[in-house]
Design a protein around this nucleic acid. Sequence first.
DNA 1: CTTGAAAAATTTAAGAA
DNA 2: TTCTTAAATTTTTCAAG
Lengths: 159, 159
Amino acid sequence: MVSLDKTDLKILQVLQAEARITNQDLSERVNLSASSCLQRVRRLEQAGVLMSYHSRINLPLICRHIVCIATVSLKNHSQQDFREFEQLVKSTPEVVECYTVSGEFDFFLKIICPDMNQYLKVNDALVSSANRSITINTHVVMNQNKYFEGLDLGKLTSE
Amino acid sequence: MVSLDKTDLKILQVLQAEARITNQDLSERVNLSASSCLQRVRRLEQAGVLMSYHSRINLPLICRHIVCIATVSLKNHSQQDFREFEQLVKSTPEVVECYTVSGEFDFFLKIICPDMNQYLKVNDALVSSANRSITINTHVVMNQNKYFEGLDLGKLTSE
DNA sequence: CTTGAAAAATTTAAGAA
DNA sequence: TTCTTAAATTTTTCAAG
């Protein structure tokens, strides 16, 4: 567990939502000189706290596509079967996120495809990937009401 | 629908996964001069194609927390009830993503809390927010196997 | 829509507190 | 850890193709 002071948290808070801010502007926001701000950012990167920087793209604006969320249950709960399924997921580019969960399902997948035809192919590949039984339930996303915009690190790290 | 050429797609492809790349490096990657590369990036921002830039933070490294995925079904499917629920979700910081879906559920939520105690509070707030009936099913995330790293825009936009 | 050059701004390393 | 300073680099504008 890396320990961070308030200034580090402020830096992370800003970078979560404005990753392309200049170091100079960032330093003003957190009341630091540009050089010590940069030093902290580099340290956070090296420590693995800042993992990567991404752009959000307005996909509906540039192409037709469908987003689905699929629940997955494996009949056989052996480590081997889990690993194999995870491997398959990792090598399937249409699956953009995958969570292992407790409860009535084993996995949640988020899948993005150009059209339903391609989705069916991905689905088939997941189902018939091996000879083990698997139940996949698909939910087509009709609207995304809330996008991830960064966590409230103050709340999460307080206490 | 905004129409993009191959160079625009390359720019988006790079920025999705390396949002803090310098414009100069980006221009080399896409075989353009720095100035025309910058011009394209600004145009993509103005057109709303590039929406925002985010950092991924290694949360397990800096604090204890739990991630849950919840399925939600409303008993009453009136527009009014949907809107009210969406409003509640938007004003609840622990809910970091929300999808309206077709099928057996109405919404999928991703929720991040410092601990289970706080999760229960959020859950209660969602359930008892109003006098309408709602079914929430919680799945604790045990592992995230695949993170969003950027779409393959070539595949999505081809044809 | 591009390039290339010049000006403005930022990043980054070094030295001192 | 911080800051200041200064050199290196990058961003940004603009004239011209």
